[in-house]
Design a protein around this nucleic acid. Structure first.
Lengths: 181, 181
DNA sequence: CTGACTTTTTCGCGTTACGGTAAATAACGG
DNA sequence: CCGTTATTTACCGTAACGCGAAAAAGTCAG
């Protein structure tokens, strides 16, 4: 692909777990070219300026295999939310609750998107090729993750709601429960 | 706290979702001091060199509240593993499988640690103060996350095992299943 | 032909967050 | 004096990225 094409298709492919604007992509392409991992070929176009289509070299493919074979450690989850929870008593609850509700929506949305992709690519839930197996596994952890975090968001929102209610409301609810139960 | 104390206690507190060595901590402390968010007071010690204990200023506390009230977006999960799964057919399976097994152990370990902390801090599973509520919620998402990822690791390892087995083994297992079932 | 717009690529500046190595203090014990 | 611990600082570098712009090449409407 050319840098321009990569920049356009990035968000809808690996964009789920990696962001890069066009400049970053061009920068990385230059680096890879300098290291001999990819090679650029100018492709003439009619009606548009020519483009520089990059292809993997054999060295590049080998380097990738080598990179992929090296042990990795799980990434840190650097989430502002966790910091705010650590210091919950020094924080305004309402904006935090709003944030959690936005996140809940976000994770539900992502879950739905992954489910749609899953049903489209793997209608019967199984992969046939090796490449598909990898994508299926990626989808599965995505689905699991979004579901988990969404569930936690619901729990957290409920918990925070209880905090932000004044004691009088809690008393009211208590007496109601007594009357009804 | 002083920078030295922070560096010592960092790993066992926020260290679960943030890493920082002593230099990084000193650097950040300097920045915060320059911005007036914290103030350093020299504390004389006997038997040791004096230390610079930093305390939050009222501006610092206000800045934190302000920061904590601003909407945040969920962090990206930049995980090498996902890249390798995306290109599973260009990757050696065995080291990947080994990596997954290491991860499985890591996440099980973390799960156990969180569980131990939970039982120690919240024996009955409920928090009394607002500060505790935040920590409990943090523990809960940690537990959920580790369990989810560990389960996924098991699934992925099994899936990859099926791939790396030659077809003859699969045939053998098929015929065994037929004879036994 | 000019001006606006798309496609494709590049440049130059800055920042944040880090890692590495070491050194400067200060106090202690032997 | 030397080695060790505690405490802080200095200096060097890097990877990854954002910002804002602009160059170059082509299209099309007015």
């Amino acid at each position: 692909m050319s840098g321009y094409e990569l920049a356009k298709t990035f968000d809808s492919s690996i964009g789920f777990f990696w962001k890069a604007d066009h400049q970053q992509i061009y920068r990385e392409l230059s680096k890879l070219r300098d290291r001999g991992h990819i090679q650029g070929h100018e492709v003439v176009q009619s009606g548009k300026p020519n483009k520089l289509v990059y292809t993997l070299t054999s060295e590049g493919r080998a380097a990738f295999r080598h990179w992929a074979a090296r042990p990795s450690s799980p990434p840190m989850i650097k989430d502002d939310l966790l910091v705010r929870l650590c210091a919950l008593d020094s924080v305004d609850i309402e904006p935090l609750r709003a944030d959690l509700m936005a996140r809940l929506e976000h994770h539900r949305d992502r879950y739905a998107r992954y489910e749609r992709i899953l049903k489209k690519l793997f209608p019967d839930g199984t992969a046939t090729s090796v490449a598909d197996t990898g994508k299926l596994l990626g989808l599965r952890i995505g689905l699991r993750h979004e579901r988990t975090v969404a569930e936690w968001c619901e729990e957290a929102i409920e918990t925070l709601s209880a905090i932000s209610k004044p004691a009088s409301v809690l008393l009211l609810e208590d007496s109601r429960r007594e009357n009804n139960g």
